[in-house]
Design a protein around this nucleic acid. Structure first.
Lengths: 247, 247
DNA sequence: AACAGGGTTTCATAGAGTGAAACGGATTAG
DNA sequence: CTAATCCGTTTCACTCTATGAAACCCTGTT
């Protein structure tokens, strides 16, 4: 029962402070203290440290804290030439031009998914997708792909996670995942966001391991259920082609 | 003499570990220990903490450490709509199209400068500029702009900083800055990198405060000294227009 | 087998991080 | 004009936590 974590508490807290900036770009000291549940003086010290190393800055006018230039510096070193998010970009652009809808690339991170790459549709009404967004694994076409095609161990671990939404009937959800496994792709219609729909297909690397989900998303009046099933083969094929590019 | 820093040592060290990834995207534990000068066990604990919060990951194949998805997530929240690096992008693109060379935007950060935005020339031979790069304030056209037009306090503080290169004659450098102050822009010819040249102009916000340097850079055979002085008025004007967009 | 080079674990100890409380400086209320 | 808030900052005594030396465990090499 005793969690044996060999981590450094002060560092954990500092990183939690940083992660506050994943929701909203500007916070005051007291606000942050409230969010992470620590005393003002502790946060003050942590923020001073983060500021010293350039991870946060204070806005001169508002006196509030923001992310600093070190984050920018590090983010420049995130993608390397052999990184999927860069390697797959040309194929994503090709698919975008073919279907004229926004294309996203997701990976699973524990019990969530993260959009690691995106190219936007050129239409006036389009899905706008920001890279880096972190979304739940319980809703959306890509979520279902990332779970359906994952190792059985991963699937059950996620479904039994304490953070998993209780109102979601586990039985029927698992059934749905099996259907997706058989179909080879997943769709979602106004599931996570009203007015939006998406089709997603799995990307396996050459050793057959699930590495990402490729999704096409747009307004639900363009991406009708019928239309999505029409698109599906092109997406599955595109995802397959991407897979062959990966080790 | 006793530096009264109220920072948290463990956090400082963890951030230094993270900053290792500003040079090279993959490191082993022992390598990092060498870089930051701490014992393996300490680094091990810090890396475990960073990994737990998603700031680093281990590459499954090489077993080495990389930056994690939390950095991606945070970087998505760096630029807000009223952020200079976003607001000025259209004008930077316009200037790029006019001059057909790479355009960069720099801000000063203590005794260095950081490239916070860039748009690349479309020519086959071009200056490639990565956003987030951190460069010395002692060389390059934008460096000289950032120093020449800064508050006198800032200028002298930087020039007397212990980290300032000793071989650089302070007197003549200060003289050069004054010339730039009079001219309204700066040039550099094969100063920092052989084969490269640049022109830079200051951007002041509406309250007259220096906020950034705008630079045009390219191969030195295209950007000859004569050519740069030809370009200068367009760059100064563009920088001025940008300034009026800022609070 | 012996060795080397990475990563992991253990443990006693010092000293570093912690939070309560008090302080200061704006801004707003009365 | 004073009182009352609301932030951020600073101080300080106590304890718990981070530390690094050393030992250990791999895997690959000589």
């Amino acid at each position: 029962m005793e969690e044996e974590k060999k981590t450094v508490r002060a560092v954990e807290r500092a990183l939690d402070v940083l992660l506050c900036f994943a929701s909203g770009h500007e916070w005051g000291l007291t606000e942050i203290a409230g969010k992470v549940g620590l005393h003002k003086s502790t946060i003050h010290r942590l923020l001073a440290t983060l500021e010293d190393r350039g991870f946060v800055t204070r806005d001169p006018s508002t006196e509030k804290y923001r992310l600093g230039l070190s984050i920018l510096e590090l983010s420049a070193h995130l993608s390397r030439s052999d990184d999927p998010s860069v390697m797959l970009l040309p194929e994503m652009e090709r698919l975008r031009d073919q279907l004229n809808e926004t294309i996203s690339l997701y990976v699973r991170d524990r019990t969530e998914r993260v959009r690691i790459q995106a190219v936007q549709s050129m239409q006036a009404i389009r899905r706008v997708a920001t890279v880096g967004a972190r979304l739940p694994l319980s809703v959306g076409a890509s979520s279902k792909v990332l779970l359906a095609f994952a190792d059985p161990g991963v699937r059950s671990a996620v479904l039994t996670d304490p953070a998993w939404p209780a109102q979601l009937e586990r039985e029927t959800f698992a059934k749905q995942l099996d259907d997706i496994l058989a179909a080879g792709y997943a769709t979602s219609f106004e599931e996570r966001e009203p007015g939006a729909a998406a089709v997603a297909a799995p990307i396996f690397n050459r050793s057959g391991k699930l590495v990402a989900a490729l999704s096409v998303s747009g307004p639900s009046n363009r991406l009708t259920p019928d239309r999505m099933h029409e698109f599906a083969p092109a997406i599955v094929e595109s995802a397959h082609r991407m897979g062959t590019m990966l080790g």
